[in-house]
Design a binder for these strands. Structure first.
Lengths: 124, 124
DNA sequence: TAGTTGTGTATAAAGTGTATATTGTATATA
DNA sequence: TATATACAATATACACTTTATACACAACTA
């Protein structure tokens, strides 16, 4: 269970944690019932406050990814396959949006991206 | 981190701030990742409005000298344009690779991704 | 069973940057 | 001179991230 954060990222710490946990769930690296690092332990490891880890876990819980039990810890919740599929589609879209934003910054055209995509697609 | 302003100068305050920050970057007194005084703190020290410090920092950010993160502060950015460009290209490639992996898993074809990409591209 | 340690939880606060509407001050132009 | 225009600087209120500290519940251990 490895979570890393970047201080220079514009993304808030609690979001970075959320995203990484979600990724691991969607990629099946984390499965139902698996334990997450405790809020305290994670806070210690990342040198941040418990409250920040709590915020991340709390929101993950509200979104149905995990559940927390006082005195015990936090765990991966049961995942509905249909919903998982939807979320995977959503993450693809998110990534495409990021690609587009970054590409426009660098002046890459839609055609450029498509060509690059094709090359990478055929390589793998 | 010392910034001084002169009220008798004809140069606007926000320009004086900008120039001094740039000087310190060019002279290596400020390096990548170093924290600048927060907009509020600097405003307090110089007895000026936050809005003026914001304007200075905002323009420095647009020019690529610094970056600001809500809740954290403002920091010196990576200065070498070539390296920055390389990094951006690398992140685009990373995202595309992820998109491809996720798409294959869900059974999306190259053509599917391209169409999706086109729609998103034109939306933004 | 009492104590200790490890969990999550709750409240309140301090620190960031951001946005909108306004005021002052030059400068140009009719 | 009078009016318009542009720009610097502001006050005030907002939104967001992160934190410190103390409390409450669960499990382990002597």
């Amino acid at each position: 269970m490895q979570i890393l954060i970047s201080n220079s990222s514009k993304e808030p710490i609690y979001q970075q944690i959320k995203h990484q946990v979600k990724e691991k769930i969607l990629s099946s690296e984390l499965r139902e019932g698996d334990a997450l690092p405790s809020m305290r332990q994670l806070a210690k490891d990342l040198h941040i406050s418990v409250i920040t880890t709590k915020r991340a876990y709390e929101e993950l819980e509200k979104e149905g990814f995990i559940y927390s039990i006082t005195g015990k810890g936090s765990f991966i919740a049961e995942q509905n396959p249909d919903i998982i599929k939807e979320k995977k589609l959503a993450t693809i879209e998110d990534k495409l949006v990021e690609v587009i934003a970054n590409s426009k910054e660098l002046g890459l055209s839609l055609q450029d991206i498509k060509e690059w995509l094709t090359i990478l697609y055929e390589e793998r």
